[in-house]
Design a protein around this nucleic acid. Structure first.
Lengths: 249, 249
DNA sequence: CGCTGCCTTGATCTTCTTCAAAACGTGTGG
DNA sequence: CCACACGTTTTGAAGAAGATCAAGGCAGCG
């Protein structure tokens, strides 16, 4: 049943030149924050940003560290997690090209509330809290754009709360797969493939359950023909049924 | 055991004059958004706001309605809820004097993702999305303040996700009581009293469980001397033990 | 005083976790 | 190219946590 080849997920390869100047400008210009700016202004903005690369599984920052910077994903994928005393981590979000993370507070002096880890090879652009505040004050339209982004993030988090408190593990997994597909989905011969290495364990951390429970549910979903999945990859084959399963209005 | 008198929670009485002009200015001036403005500027801001009163249990807006306004609580308390198909609502947050709700998106054209209901007699000040956008562009410092507020809101929502996915019902109730006490707590002879009508059912909706489970946990907490509680009210008598129970770092 | 909500308590049943072990896939080094 | 080794995934069985169903109690209010 399961395809006999290796993971269909493309292993993101990033060459050193990928964070080069022209690329940077293009990436910054496409950020929702800066779409309203002229290319000249983008150039100014670019001055404030610093680039940096990370290897898979390398941490970008840890929970509790002084929150000093705002990051933007310039290439690759990043995951945000929280730890618990019991060692039962939870995975808050997965970020791709153009997503930002770190601190949006312009005050500084706070701590990161989550840990950011490179999921693939990653290149980030980042700006200090003070530098960001500067940008906001210089370009009021940026502030408005940031606000809009923030409010949709807040909505997402509340969706998550909603989802966690009122649904079964199966429903939560269905919902999470749909969300991931929306963000990282790529149509191919297997179905709608989620473009990231995604283990049962990752999924378990996202929906707040165990690896075993996740495995059982995934097996069932596969048997029912809603998904196809193998080692660290998942593709959706029946969006409609998955959606109705998720119980989301 | 239980005090023989009626609920110790003050029934918030609001006189018609409570939304009067001078009061409005005072309230607006105290909002985190506007603390940086001069009293003259506050006067300008005030022009954009409209006031309105609500009775307990009256809806301010419903999920799915066109999201056109940003509200501020000028008096009383407001709760935000989400509905599910199964009728199992969840309670996202309780708001008090100075808290804002509604839409922060300056775009308009979106829908409210939650329902806002007056918990007590309530007076709100509100501004249209367009009017708010106007304020942001006129006073850049406001935008920065709004952002900071937003980012702490986002953190709260993520805390909630964290809490829901990794903890037992008992821990979640302990945590929720602590959060409510932090926001609405008032020291008195019973302990740290949560100043709002708070039923078992409300709590259940907040932690994503049933009325019965909540009742069992609350009885146990009372027996163990961590809280005192009666019909629609809760007071905390042992903060430390409650905190350690909640399992929150 | 009796009605209407809230709150409590018990018994049963479902869902999910936990513990344990085996099967599988992938990349590695012989 | 094969075989081994490691991490991932699967499966089973026992147990715990919580949901559900069903009554009954208690407070406040007309």
């Amino acid at each position: 049943m399961t395809p006999s080849r290796k993971s269909p997920v493309e292993p993101e390869t990033i060459e050193p030149h990928m964070c080069a100047l022209d690329l940077r400008l293009e990436i910054l210009g496409k950020l929702p924050f800066f779409t309203s700016l002229s290319s000249n202004e983008i150039h100014q903005v670019n001055q404030s940003f610093v680039e940096r690369g990370y290897q898979p599984d390398e941490a970008i920052y840890y929970t509790g560290e002084q929150a000093e910077r705002l990051y933007v994903v310039a290439a690759g994928k990043v995951k945000l997690l929280r730890h618990t005393i019991s060692g039962k981590d939870i995975l808050l979000d997965v970020l791709k090209l153009g997503d930002f993370f770190g601190t949006l507070s312009t005050l500084g002096g706070e701590n990161y509330s989550e840990t950011a880890v490179a999921l693939t090879t990653v290149c980030t652009l980042s700006v200090s809290a003070a530098g960001f505040r500067h940008l906001l004050e210089k370009f009021p339209s940026v502030a408005v754009a940031v606000l809009d982004t923030m409010s949709s993030r807040l909505l997402e988090a509340q969706d998550m709360v909603h989802q966690l408190s009122a649904h079964t593990v199966e429903q939560r997994i269905a919902f999470t797969l749909l969300k991931l597909a929306e963000k990282l989905g790529e149509e191919n011969d297997l179905g709608l493939l989620i473009q990231m290495p995604l283990s049962r364990d990752d999924l378990a951390m996202m929906v707040g359950t165990t690896t075993e429970s996740t495995s059982r549910v995934m097996s069932q979903l596969q048997k029912d023909g809603l998904i196809r999945s193998g080692r660290q990859w998942v593709a959706i084959t029946d969006l409609d049924r998955l959606r109705s399963l998720s119980g989301y209005e």
